[in-house]
Design a protein around this nucleic acid. Structure first.
Lengths: 204, 204
DNA sequence: GTCTATACACTGATAGAC
DNA sequence: GTCTATCAGTGTATAGAC
């Protein structure tokens, strides 16, 4: 079962892009890696950007959609802090996974100069994840696990430091610097966050 | 008093870069905007990257260094929440200022493919600002305004959502979408954050 | 020192033959 | 689908005029 030329192009492009950046991954290098001429690529993709849009679309996977599918807030949010811990564990798994790390780098680059990717980025990090998480906080409030607050705000406040950590992680990796010190920060964030919103003394 | 050619090059480059992105600002366009030949640019800058490094270095100003100079934590942190409000007001001023917005866009782009800018970025957003702010939190703790917590962690948790808002703001602007809804989120962040750490009932 | 002229290797992209 | 040939545009370099 031979891979299609189109898939070979995508693989080659992802590889080159991850190591040499967007502009470092020239059409000629991609073509030579696949074993065809540059112009042949244009039979499969409109242009260079189209290649990376497809990479992003294919790999910008539903890492957290999966989490919410397997941990539906309506049922599991009752776990309170434990639920957040599980979310962060899933988040860390993605953040530290080499393949997703590559992708995250590409997304960040492309976000700044490709409108379609930018829209994906905005929708993903500033809408969908927040919407899913805010539902969990809503249920926690209903069960008096946390104090009354706008669920949307809570989700934003919970996710922003995680995103920040992931960004820092990516940049440090690009510098080939250590990231072990970062690892514990994820859990410390949950502890701090929960401390600020939890209802410690039971009340009606 | 005529501007030097070097400054003209920097101005032209910043302008082109802000509207057409890094690769859209070609050496030929920059040169023609200044009124010289491409090759003349190389009398003033080693290469294209050197131009943008200089732009970033010059404009990546000490917007928040200024704040801490005018609002020394050792003296003013006693104001507690009011101090944070003032910081966020300064932060918003920078975030919504057109010139700094341009710069922020360039920095984000360059961070992903220029090591020097990346180092600047890491130092600025993940070290210096946090270090300065953590001192303020340290003093608030000493005055029993907030609960005991790692000042560094507090600074991180306080800054991350602000950075996140600024990023979202920048991306929305690139989409020519409205940002008025974002504006109030800055203040809501301070309210939420303070609620989570403040010592409400006075205690020794 | 500052500019012009010219050249080079490389880029993304297209047209047309097989 | 893939090729060859070719295009304009890019960053960069150097030699030489003023």
């Amino acid at each position: 079962m031979e891979k299609s030329t189109k898939d070979k192009i995508l693989d080659a492009a992802l590889d080159l892009m991850a190591t040499s950046g967007y502009s470092g991954a020239s059409m000629r290098k991609i073509a030579s890696k696949v074993g065809i001429r540059e112009s042949a690529i244009y039979n499969h993709f409109k242009n260079k950007e189209a290649i990376f849009e497809e990479i992003v679309r294919k790999l910008f996977v539903t890492a957290f959609d999966d989490f919410f599918k397997n941990h539906p807030p309506q049922i599991e949010a009752i776990k309170g802090k434990k639920y957040l811990k599980e979310f962060v564990a899933a988040y860390k798994l993605v953040a530290f996974d080499p393949k997703h790390e590559k992708l995250f780098r590409i997304i960040l680059i492309e976000t700044m100069h490709n409108q379609k990717v930018r829209k994906l980025f905005l929708d993903r990090f500033f809408s969908r994840d927040i919407k899913d998480l805010s539902m969990a906080f809503f249920f926690m409030m209903q069960h008096s696990l946390i104090r009354q607050e706008d669920p949307h705000l809570l989700a934003y406040e919970f996710l922003a430091p995680l995103f920040s950590l992931r960004l820092e992680l990516t940049l440090l990796r690009m510098e080939h610097e250590g990231t072990t010190a970062l690892s514990t920060k994820f859990e410390r964030h949950v502890d701090f966050f929960w401390e600020g919103i939890a209802i410690s003394s039971p009340q009606a």
